[in-house]
């Protein structure tokens, strides 16, 4: 099957790859470009752990065809910190113990980042709605919600979005 060339920005860097017409973005990121931030949890868009931002929009990378990312900017959890300096959301997740096994965390952080970009001062209900596409099977939702609310209150959040 003929491969398709695709060029896009990944966390601020230009990347290029050849993909099959049915290859999804998650496989390209993980197996093609060695970005292991987004995880495979279900492959059918129900768990949210593969969540990435494509041109700022929340996308499930397991349901996104890699070839459609031509010319776009893909952001994953791997690009959230600026060097050794954690993103305020990452710091809030640490401060509030908002991870147990850590497997849903990349998707949770990405969903939270998109939420705060659109709504810098969400209510608790809006936070719950914002992460409703992400499953935490360790059921640590409360700490995650607290962490996102704290990051929003921290005010620094606005600057980086």
């Amino acid at each position: 099957m003929a491969k398709i060339p695709v060029q896009f920005r990944l966390n601020g860097s230009d990347r290029a790859a050849f993909v099959g017409p049915s290859d999804n973005l998650l496989t390209l990121l993980r197996r093609g470009l060695n970005d292991f931030g987004p995880k495979y949890g279900c492959g059918q868009g129900t768990c949210g752990t593969c969540t990435v931002l494509v041109d700022g929009d929340l996308q499930l990378s397991c349901l996104t065809l890699a070839a459609t990312c031509e010319g776009k900017h893909v952001e994953t959890v791997s690009g959230m910190a600026e060097g050794p300096v954690l993103h305020p959301l990452q710091q809030a997740f640490m401060d509030h113990f908002a991870a147990q096994c850590g497997f849903c965390t990349p998707g949770m952080l990405t969903a939270a980042k998109a939420l705060l970009a659109a709504n810098p001062n969400p209510t608790r209900a809006e936070v719950i709605d914002g992460i409703s596409g992400n499953i935490c099977r360790c059921t640590g939702y409360d700490a995650i919600i607290e962490a996102i609310l704290a990051a929003a209150r921290g005010g620094q959040a606005k600057r980086t979005y």
Partner: peptide, 27 residues
Amino acid sequence: KGAQRQDMPGHVTGRSPFFDDHAFEGL
């Protein structure tokens, strides 16, 4: 008392090495 978990930085940066997070040539 609150004590930070040692694996937390890896979890929030997406760098915690789950079994599938390893690249191999010729996989």
